[in-house]
Structures are given as C-alpha cells and as structure tokens.
Write a protein that binds this DNA or RNA. Structure first.
Lengths: 360, 360
DNA sequence: CTGAAAGCGCTTACAG
DNA sequence: CTGAAAGCGCTTACAG
C-alpha cells in the first residue's frame, strides 16, 4: 500500500529545533539532583550504584549530550587544541598533521584547525580566536617570518596565552619564540646533502629558494652553502633563485634559472614541494633528470617517491614531528625553559641525482 | 653589563596562571556596566560614543579576550563547524579541505577537524563529540560504508543533531543519509571514462577497486561496467581486483592482477590514490605506461599531474566541492528536503593512456 | 541609550 | 554518598 508510505526519506522534521536535553532533565527523570547526575555521568565521585544506573539509563533514554561549553565554563577545563598552518593542502603540512591527529586522538583531544593562507596577520588573528576558545594548547606549523613587528605581535599574543596557562608548541620555526619547539636540523641536513652531492662529483650548483625571511629557508640555504664551502665551492649570487614557497614557486624559480642559459649540474630546491615544480620545469625544457641535471629537495614528503625519477632529499620524520609537537605541548612543566626537540634529517639519495655528465 | 641582563628568553614567567581578564573587569575599568561593555564590544546595540570608546580602550589595555564558551552558552550561538574525514594526509581529502577552510574563513567559522583513521565507530563518536560542542554544522567527508547497523547509528546521531538545529552536509556519500549532499556523478563519470578508453581502442580491461561496501567504489565500478557494456564488453570477475582504498591498496591490487599473468591493455583504478600505487607496481614489474599498459584513475588530485606519465582521470572540482559543502550546510532552509548538489566529473586524457599496442 | 537581573548548562566546594 | 547553592563568564530581554 504505497499510499500509506511516509515520505520520510529526505524530509526534515518540521517545527522549531528541539532544544537539547539538559543535565537537569536527566536528573529529574532519574529522580536525583543535578549534582548527582553530573557525578554519575562523569565518574568524578563514587555514586551509589543504583542511582548511577538510573542516571545512565535516563541519559541514554533521553539522548543526553552534555553541553561542552557549559562544561568548559563550569570546570574551566577544555579538551581542545588549536593547530595553525599555512595551507591544509600542502603535502608537508598533511604529513605533519597526520601525526598531530593521531596524538590528538590518543589524548582524546579535539583539534581546531586554522589555515592562514600564508597571510601572516591571519596567524595572529587565529591565535586570538583560539585563546577565546580557551584551547588547551596551540600548535604553530608554519615557518616563521622574520618581520620585527609581526613577530612582536605574535609573541605578545602567545605570551599572554601562556601566562594564562595555555601551552604552545611550534614545528620548524624560528627559535625567537619562547615556546616549545620541534626543530628540524635544517642547517645540518642541508650541509649533509651538500656533502653527498659533492660526493657524486658535482661542482656546479644552483639553489631554488623561498622567501629569505622564512627561517627554514635561510637555515637550509646557509647549511647548503656551508657544505659547499667545505669543498671550497661558492654559490654565485645568480645561482640562488628565489621563488614562492610552493610547487609553482619552484617551477618558476627553475624556469628563471634556465632562462639565464645557465646549466649547473645540480640543483637543490629547499623544499620537496618546490622541487616538484622544478622537476616539471626541467622536463618542459627538455632536460632529463638526472642525466642532464640532478635535482634534490628537502623534507621527504610522501609524494616524492612517486615521481620519476624519485627525488633525492633530506628526509624528516614529518608525522612523528607532528606527534611530538602535541606531546611536547601537553607535557607541561611549569617554570621550565621552553624545550627544543631537535630532529635530525637524513640524506636519502634517490634517482634524481647522479654523477654529473662527463660533458657537463 | 651582562650581569644585569634578564634571562627572559626561553624562560616562562613563574607563579600560577593569571586568570584571563573578564568582561566584568573591562566594564569596571571603563566605568560602565557589564551589559554596556558587552554591547560596546559586540556592536549589537548603539552605545553612546564616549562609553564605547572607553570600553574599547579598557579592553585593549587589559588585553581582554572574550570567553567563547561563555558566549556560546549565553547566546546559544556558535561559530564552529566540524569536519570529519578518514585521513588528513590523503591528498583527496587535502584538496577538498582546502575549499572547506576557505569557505570557513569567509564565514568566520572555526573548524574542528576529526580524523577517523578509517574506523567507522570513530565517525559516530566524533559526531557525538561535535554535538557536544554544539557545532553549527557537521561535514562528513568520507565515503560511507554499507553496513546496516552502523548506518543506523550514524543516522540516528545525525538526525538528533539536526533536530536540535544542527546542519549536516556530506561530500561524496551514500544518499541514504537524510542530509545535504555534494555528490560527484561517480557513475556517469566512470561511464564517460570507459567510453573514452574504448575510443582509444582498448578492449581488455581490468579494474582496481576498493572495498565493495564503499558506495563511491560501487558507483564507479558500476558506471565503468555500464560504459563497457555499451560496446558489448564485459568485465570478467578475475579482472576486478579489490584492494584497500589507499596508495598501497592500489599497489597491492595491481600486483595481484599481474600475478595472474594477466595483461589487460588498460587498467582503471577507482581513485587516483590507488592509481598512484598501481603505477608504481607496474613500473616495478617492468611494464611501461602507457606503452605496455594504459592506466586511468578518478578524482584528479593535484599530484597526478606530476607523475610520469601524468595520469588520465576523471576530474572532480575537489576544492570547489569542499567549499560547496559548507555553503550548503550554512544555507539553512527549514523543513526543506535535503538538497543534493550534483557535481559532474570530466574525463581528462593524459599520457598514461594510449591506444593499445598492436601486439597487445 | 543604560543597568540590574536573570539565565545559559554545567561543576564543585560545602554541608550534611 | 547526596543535595542545595554558588559560580563559571557572558548575553539579553526587561525596565527605566
């Protein structure tokens, strides 16, 4: 009898939103006080077994869901952490956040995610919003910018936050912030990479770099330079090309390098993401990697293994770093110095680098 | 005089956490009532200009940050949306979430992100947590699972949430949920892909597929089958290999296909992520793509353009879909049917597919 | 336009 | 162990 069929599917119930069941209601149907109901539900205090059972039954029957805001307000507790990144679709962040999410789940934390879209001011605004949310911790996953006034604003936000009991941890960021830090050894990693590339026989290098104010960039560049210097090799100014800190930035920087008609035998892109763009650019210009030109990156984001050729890089344990950041932030030790957890990078030679061609 | 230098850097102030400044404090130093302070800060009502200025000055001076929990509780408003996904490091999700974050920023919403790690029960648990947070909307970005009892639980959570005024939107998910949906035309897209591949001259196909219970999988598989059927071609059972819905799942499925000694001329992986794994597997087995075997995926995640060869796929506007999901959820229309926004996929032929080798 | 007061939904000393 | 009461920090009718 199709005529009696209720057209429920796809139709939302009418009427005003039913307001959620409160603790009060649960207590009443269980015949106890709200205090007892609260204690039974939270297990904070012993509650007579039969009362406990009645409360639980009532809660279940009424479909009670506690109001987290009321809980946070009353108990001034909170199980939220904030994470601020530049761009959620960047594979570098994706890898780190994977570890963050895992750690958050382990600690039964909810994650509030904010994306700055690479606008520094948004970062400060988000810290402020997360402060308003009384987030238990804030994670900054984004290379810092060396801008005096911006840095000051951020620092004052963070300090105020910390003074009220908030925890802050940053990943891969300027050490000037007085916060717990997971710090990749960018300098050492880049130096090691330089040595490895020198070991392959390269002498003519170029670097595709990001905005100089990004501390990650300057550290890696300096480290690479230092490695070359050990072999008495200098990096001429025209072989350090700056691009945006993105795939397209790497592409454009590579194009610019080639436009000079210049052909170093080996190119180091300061991040894998930029290297991906560079690889595409080389290919578009008919250059074979590594036969015509070697290419190396930094980070070891998962996708570089899928490239042809797979990319030589300095591998960072990105997921573990994300995990560490939360762990660090949660392992509070009042009055302690801010801690720095250094993370070593490991040079991984893959097929994108080879000894320079004899003719090169 | 180095001895007078304060060792501030890296040292956190001592003493107990200073409790944050309250509205009350701001009101008092401004010499007005909390009500007026609230109104001045929020701009909800006209406030005499001089009072307003005093309040703002006081707030600024004291470094006032409102307590979002108190605001949420008092006004029963809330500017948070929840997003539930399987895996934050999956490029498919990354692309979608990019649009989600953009839309969230536009609406001044904070995003609570939850990752299920592909455990269905976690999804239900997170919906419940987001209900407790009184999130304004919940987005489910994850292919649904066809499991009767699980589906029922999820549905009842979501219905209860919606009844209390919450909004739900899902991306790419089973239509059985009574929620707003952004739905890629998986079936039609796969059919169009089949036609295109047939157009290249292929007659021998295999499909690398994910868990059959995932609706996305069954739709794409069915659509592909339908497209082949138009040309009178059937897909033999042994040429439909099931793997996990991941890069490695695609890899393993491809290995399994090759183990049969079977060489279809063209392989369709139901997602790009799986295709990435398949490409690697083919390469490991010495097969050239597309010379020895053609390969196509679905989704057009950004990285497939970086592969060698770049992958033929059915392009979905992933970022726009994420954006739409929020827009849909926020565009409330009470009592309306749940809306479905269909999104067409577009076949993009790239170098990973070519006419079959004459010998094939 | 402004303020006193009630109330949002919980938790937690404080007494029993 | 249990309950009445106060309080968390705001917002918002309700009177002026």
């Amino acid at each position: 009898m199709p005529s009696t069929e209720t057209p429920e599917r796809g139709v939302r119930p009418l009427g005003p939103p039913r307001s959620p069941v409160t603790l009060h209601a649960v207590a009443r149907t269980a015949g106890v006080s709200p205090a007892t109901a609260s204690r039974a539900l939270n297990g904070t205090t012993r509650v007579r077994e039969d009362l406990r059972a009645r409360v639980l039954a009532a809660a279940d029957e009424l479909g009670y869901i506690p109001n987290a805001h009321a809980q946070a307000l009353a108990s001034s507790s909170n199980n939220t952490v904030g994470v601020i990144c530049h761009d959620v679709s960047d594979p570098y962040f994706a890898a780190i956040s994977s570890g963050v999410m895992r750690a958050a789940a382990e600690h039964e934390l909810l994650v509030m995610l904010a994306s700055t879209f690479r606008e520094p001011d948004r970062e400060i605004a988000y810290v402020s919003m997360l402060r308003a949310q009384r987030a238990r911790a804030i994670l900054l996953i984004a290379s810092g910018i060396e801008d005096r006034s911006w840095e000051r604003s951020l620092d004052s936000e963070l300090t105020a936050y910390q003074n009220s009991g908030g925890r802050v941890a940053v990943v891969s960021r300027h050490r000037s912030l007085r916060v717990d830090t997971v710090l990749p050894e960018n300098r050492a990693g880049a130096t090691a990479l330089a040595r490895a590339l020198l070991g392959l026989g390269h002498r003519e290098f170029a670097v595709l770099t990001g905005p100089a104010r990004l501390t990650t960039v300057s550290d890696r560049l300096a480290g690479f330079r230092a490695g070359l210097a050990e072999a008495g090799i200098r990096l001429p100014r025209h072989r350090v090309i700056t691009g945006a800190f993105t795939r397209d930035g790497g592409h454009d920087a590579a194009v610019q390098l080639l436009r000079h008609g210049d052909r170093p035998s080996c190119v180091f892109a300061v991040t894998d993401v930029m290297a991906v763009g560079a690889l595409a650019a080389f290919r578009e210009h008919g250059l074979r990697v590594p036969e015509d030109i070697s290419l190396a990156g930094f980070d070891d984001i998962p996708l570089v293994r899928e490239l042809t050729p797979p990319l030589t890089t300095v591998a960072l344990p990105l997921t573990a770093m994300g995990h560490s950041a939360i762990a660090l932030a949660l392992r509070a030790e009042r009055g302690r110095r801010s801690r720095v957890e250094r993370v070593a990078g490991e040079v991984v030679l893959r097929a994108s680098t080879a000894p320079p061609a004899p003719g090169g």
